[in-house]
Amino acid sequence: MRVIREKTESVTPVWGAAAMATGIVAIGLHLVGADWPSRGLFAIGVTIWAGLAAVFVARLAADRARWNADAITPGALTAIAATDVLGTWLSLFGRQNVAVGALVIAAVLWAVLLPVVVGHLRGAVPGAAYLVCVSTQSLVVLSATLAVALPAQRFKWPAICLFVLGLLLYGLVLAHFDFKQLRTGAGDHWVAGGAIAISALAAAKLTAATHDHDVLRVVTLILVAMALAWYAVLLVCEVRWPRLRFDARRWSTVFPLGMTSVACLFSGTTLKIPAFTTLGKVLLWPAVVVWAVVAIGALRRLRVSDEPG
């Protein structure tokens, strides 16, 4: 038991972005018809999710002070988003009962963690702070997905309320965001764009759930345009200020790459805009490549940490 505790001591909530990133790339692969690679990535994402859940449940039992310190950080919200993303994949593959269970778990975590994290946001905040928006919109995405798949209209109105709240939380963080992170951030600065991308996906999902509501169509178009603008800005910043060393926060770069692709793919289908669908397909492959690069970096980091001395 002591050996396991020592091995997991360096694990922080930031690593939850690995499950988020893996899950959203798996969804993207499914949307372009690559189901077997999608299933493989989903299995990896669930393994990461289960491993992290075990670590933090054990930490809750053995080291309450450390757990409390972790719970007030924005990274803690990756638990919510990862659960919702993996739940959305399950719904797309017809596992509605399990997806509902994932939604319940995520909703409970959201109710417990979000107020604590928002209450501890102080001063200029990093990109990870946008997870207050991401975690909220992830509930919208899964709820709206289930509203169509079951169908179950009882999910629709709570999802709309959460969607509006997610946008308000985005504005709150944007007002306090440290824009120097675009130059110095270690990877989680990409969540500034990822939060808008998941908001665009949430709007598209709600559009489908409400039978093509005109207001939601317009909101979806605006949010997709904003997500693409953020994507371009963040990409330029990566070229201008390269950050090539591995950092666990790089998983928070993979997630927005995959989410922007999925938002375009689903919006293109829902709004019947082929250009969005084509763009989503194009953007998926950089997300797959970056996922592979970050995964290799993570495996190397774990191997080095296991070496004696």
Rank of each mutant, 00 (worst) to 15 (best):
L146N: 12
D188Q: 05
R183Q: 15
Q153C: 09
A186P: 10
F155E: 03
A159H: 08
F177R: 08
Q153V: 12
G171D: 08
G187F: 07
G166H: 09
G171I: 04
L182S: 01
L165M: 12
D188Y: 13
G193L: 13
W190D: 01
D188H: 11
A147S: 11
G194P: 01
W190C: 07
W190G: 00
K180V: 02
V164S: 06
F163M: 12
L182V: 01
G193C: 04
V148M: 15
H189R: 15
T184P: 00
A195V: 00
D178M: 12
W190M: 11
C161A: 11
L165S: 03
G171K: 02
F155N: 02
P158W: 07
P158H: 02
V191N: 03
L169N: 03
L168G: 14
G166M: 11
G185I: 02
A195H: 05
D188C: 08
V164G: 06
R183S: 03
F179V: 15
W157C: 01
D188P: 10
V173S: 04
A149R: 15
L167S: 03
T184K: 04
L165H: 02
V191W: 10
K156Y: 07
A159R: 02
Q181E: 09
T184R: 08
P158K: 05
D178T: 01
A149E: 05
H176T: 05
A186T: 01
T145C: 12
A147P: 09
L167I: 15
A192K: 00
V164P: 00
V191P: 00
I160A: 14
Q181C: 06
A192L: 15
L169M: 12
L168K: 07
T184A: 05
D178A: 08
F163A: 10
V173E: 01
I160W: 14
G187N: 06
D178L: 09
L168W: 15
H176C: 06
H189F: 15
